[in-house]
Design a protein around this nucleic acid. Structure first.
Lengths: 302, 302
DNA sequence: GTGAAAGCGCTAACAG
DNA sequence: CTGTTAGCGCTTTCAC
């Protein structure tokens, strides 16, 4: 007995959980393994809401002969294909995939995963996708600022653009151009943090460039922008009106509260989870794209 | 063939991933399954940092004969015991457990999990624990406010206290009492959101109670408190100084920036992950408690 | 105590 | 194309 323990230690034995599980499994009950697959680099705000909703629906369907496990699994951005068990279906009965890079999208486009998949926030052929409408978001943001009478507009973006942030700023710029004939200034933050947003905008304002309206394509950048604006002695919204994107859970507690145009997270979460369960129940259901229109929350900042 | 497909659909067949995995498993490679177990109700900020650090160490140890999978699994607060595979080790080779409620702590104290476990933020007999020092945090917070000359102190807590938040506020109250002979006022927020913090403090200030210094035991409550204070026409820190807890990633971008006394997250994350791997490699290693001293960041709010 | 055997659900391989 | 079989690693059971 003691010999065994010692061998275990010396040989670095690792119990095989798959075998244990197979053994421990009660043949009467079906286990559904659900995963939410996201990249390490992405924030977990929306993901955690998706998880909570998945669990809510799973709990409602749990019974003596049916159990669900839900987990968040992360991949290195651009290396989704390295995730074990993806192709041979040995990990999940259903997944929601989000926060992919173009490399991951290419990988997915080239394969068919033999289980239920819903993609969140990316448009991919052969997959059911739930999408926000970044073009419309950018357009509405521009309209809010223009209607206030702002004319010296600035769009604040991170240096690294995703499908969504790129389309948002494009649409914003196009709308401003078509309505005023002038090009909004483009300010680029080095990273995704408030600090990089503050730094970029501080440089812009410090250079004496005029600005009376700002569109930040992510809310974390807006938070940094607030600081830069206040430090420059300008008032929000009197001197500079600000519009953000509405995926920040605390936008109501910015000072002043941040006006947002953004995807309606509740709707997105509900759609993506509903479709996942639908695809699990009806394997034959056909691929579809679901667009979730933006919600607009006018608050103190514009 | 078509008959099979139809039967699959009609009988609601669910592939057994454990069996598939066992089958697909290459006998040469050992799979280590790591989990970070947290409650649904808790925020994922620290958890996601822990996950990234776990993955970093896992990547460094990955080789041709050793693979790691890391996932976040959530349990309903107070019902950790319902998590499948916990007791029979059929899910994980190692876990980090955090954000437990007292019921979960009692469950854990009553069992021994047959694999590597590190508990984060709770003190449990028979488990390796990484702990902040809430008593010291509460004491230092009190000292900062007292040194400023504040005498009408308030401590803002959520209604549902964890080990940490309870100890923080106890220590704060004890320190204030021993140094001034007076009891600080205790304001209780219904939930954990900024809105509930704002509402609770608004009621307190509205009732004409005096307050020149506030300690919020979580930073999300501090965010709500800011709004209530400003709405009451008071200035931070001139009229009311505020101290928060320093686990908020954007404390620097509060207006004014929030003075924080809190656990040093980098140190905590590194400790907890190091100990997890250490316990996986050396099964015989003995239980230990690791205390991470608080860091203090004096900013504009106090 | 030790040892042997069955079987969890699946897939790959092979035979008909 | 259909049917059968072996075996992945583990635990439980039963025999010694």
């Amino acid at each position: 007995m003691e010999k065994i323990r010692q061998a275990v230690r010396e040989l670095g034995y690792v119990p095989n959980v798959a075998a244990r599980r197979l053994r421990a499994h009660d043949p009467e009950v079906h286990h559904h393994e659900l995963g939410i697959l996201t990249s390490f680099e992405a924030p977990l705000f929306l993901v955690s809401r998706v998880l909570r909703q998945v669990q809510r629906m799973a709990d409602a369907r749990t019974g003596p002969s049916r159990k669900f496990s839900v987990s968040i699994d992360m991949f290195h951005a651009g290396r989704l294909h390295e995730m074990p068990g993806l192709l041979n279906a040995s990990r999940f009965n259903g997944v929601i995939i989000t926060n992919t890079l173009p490399e991951d999208d290419a990988f997915l486009a080239g394969t068919t995963l033999p289980y239920a998949v819903v993609v969140l926030g990316r448009r991919l052929p052969n997959y059911s996708c739930v999408l926000d409408t970044p073009g419309e978001i950018g357009r509405r943001a521009a309209e809010i600022l223009l209607k206030r009478g702002c004319r010296q507009l600035v769009v604040l973006t991170p240096a690294l653009l995703t499908q969504s942030t790129a389309e948002r700023s494009e649409a914003f710029i196009a709308t401003v151009r078509s309505q005023t004939g002038r090009e909004p200034a483009r300010v680029t933050a080095a990273g995704f943090t408030p600090a990089s947003g503050a730094e970029a905008l501080r440089a812009h304002l410090g250079a004496g460039r005029r600005c009376d309206g700002l569109y930040a394509v992510t809310d974390v950048l807006a938070l940094g922008a607030y600081q830069a604006i206040k430090d420059a002695g300008r008032k929000i919204p009197r001197d500079i009106a600000v519009v953000g994107v509405g995926d920040h859970e605390h936008a109501d507690f910015f000072d002043p509260p941040l006006t947002c145009v953004g995807p309606s997270n509740d709707t997105i979460v509900e759609q993506v989870v509903t479709h996942l369960f639908h695809r699990m129940n009806h394997r034959r259901v056909k691929i579809a794209e679901f667009f979730v229109p933006p919600s607009v929350a006018i608050r103190g900042s514009a």
